[in-house]
Computed example of a mutant assay.
Amino acid sequence: MNFLSTCKGSLMESFFPQGWDLAKIDQCASGSKADFYLRQPHWHEGFQPVPCESLEQFNAYMGHEIAWTIKEARDRGEKLALILPVGPMGMYQWTVYFLKAWNVSASHVYGFNMDEWSDAEGNTLPPTNSGAFQYAMENSFYNLLGEGTIPVNQRYFATKEQLPTYAAKIAELKQDGAKLAVIYGIGRVFHIAFWEPQFAGEYGSEAEWAAQTHRIGAKLHPLTIEQNAITSFKSRTTLVPCYANTIGPGLFLQADYAIGGADGALGRGMMWQGMSLRTTLKYGPDPWIPSSYMPTLPGKLFFLEELAAPLEPELN
């Protein structure tokens, strides 16, 4: 039996985003470990997936790549715009470690948080709240850099006041010779930042979708809420906000370089990100699968090697 056919007429049929090709997603999710590593025609020649044997290696590799990007920009005498996630997070301690070891200041960097929890009107938590993404960035990255930190007036957070200014500021920096690098994770429903797949249904063309720079009070997909309940809220779904302010493809697709991370393994053979990673790599660019565009950009995507294993069911 093809169990995909059993979705017809069920709650799941309306639960999944309308534009998802479930058969194609399942095809992306199937296959051997060797098949996982086959380069795809739509990948940028400068795109490279990088396997990591452990979470510790993942954090160190990804942190090194971010630090090296900051160092290279400084060596060239360029400003650098960085779009930054809160998830994954473990790489930031290593970014700080390498920058301090090399005695490299980040004063030439402009940091743009890619998203932030909000209510439906875009109101966000105060930055002193431990649940706010601004709080996480300040305490896990900026404050740890010490004297070589990114200046306060070069830090931008996804509030309803600051987020709409991102596009103009990044354009101004690029005109001044700056490069744009985006650091990203991949959501359970293939989002980048909180740009959700169902948003694709609101636009008449791919070009219109790709021009969107941000959204205030973005309504999150239920699977995004449940993903965050598992990864950030100790399973407590009732604490997870249903909305967020987020950048859109009009910003992340401008990146001169992209550094991605997929660390969604839970132990004992359990994971939440295997299908998301495989679909990101193999689906091909499609607005209903926002992460499918990331392999079209130059950069590296670090991932736990466990996620590349065949995605076959097993009893735990």
Rank of each mutant, 00 (worst) to 15 (best):
L239W: 08
M275F: 08
P51A: 07
G248P: 03
P285M: 06
L180M: 12
V152S: 03
L80Y: 11
I70Q: 06
F98C: 03
S118Y: 10
Y142L: 02
T128Y: 05
E121P: 00
L84P: 02
H42W: 11
S5L: 15
H64V: 02
V109E: 15
T95C: 04
P88E: 11
G284E: 15
S232W: 07
G63M: 06
A193F: 05
M137S: 07
Q254W: 15
A200R: 10
I216Q: 14
M294Y: 02
S54M: 04
M271V: 07
W20T: 09
H214A: 05
A218P: 00
D26L: 06
Q40E: 15
A34W: 06
T6K: 06
M91V: 01
A265C: 07
W94G: 00
S232Y: 12
G217E: 09
E65H: 02
Y293S: 11
A29Y: 15
N113M: 08
G204Q: 05
R155I: 14
G9S: 05
G9F: 09
E305Y: 03
G264K: 11
K8N: 07
L22K: 10
E65A: 12
N316T: 10
S10L: 05
K282P: 00
G250W: 09
H214N: 09
T165R: 13
T95H: 13
A132F: 10
K71D: 06
Y156M: 10
P285K: 13
T213F: 01
S276K: 12
I70W: 08
A229E: 13
E45S: 07
I66G: 01
N129Q: 15
K33Q: 09
K33L: 06
M137C: 05
D119M: 11
K300T: 03
L223M: 15
E196P: 03
I259N: 08
L251I: 14
G299N: 02
W288N: 14
T6Y: 04
L180R: 10
N129V: 06
F194G: 00
I170G: 00
F133T: 01
Y37H: 12
G260Y: 06
M12I: 11
A168K: 13
Q93N: 08
P151H: 13
L11Y: 14
F15C: 01
K24L: 13
K234Q: 11
I247M: 04
L307M: 06
I186P: 01
L144C: 14
A218E: 06
G87I: 00
A171M: 15
L11G: 14
L315R: 09
Q134R: 12
A178I: 05
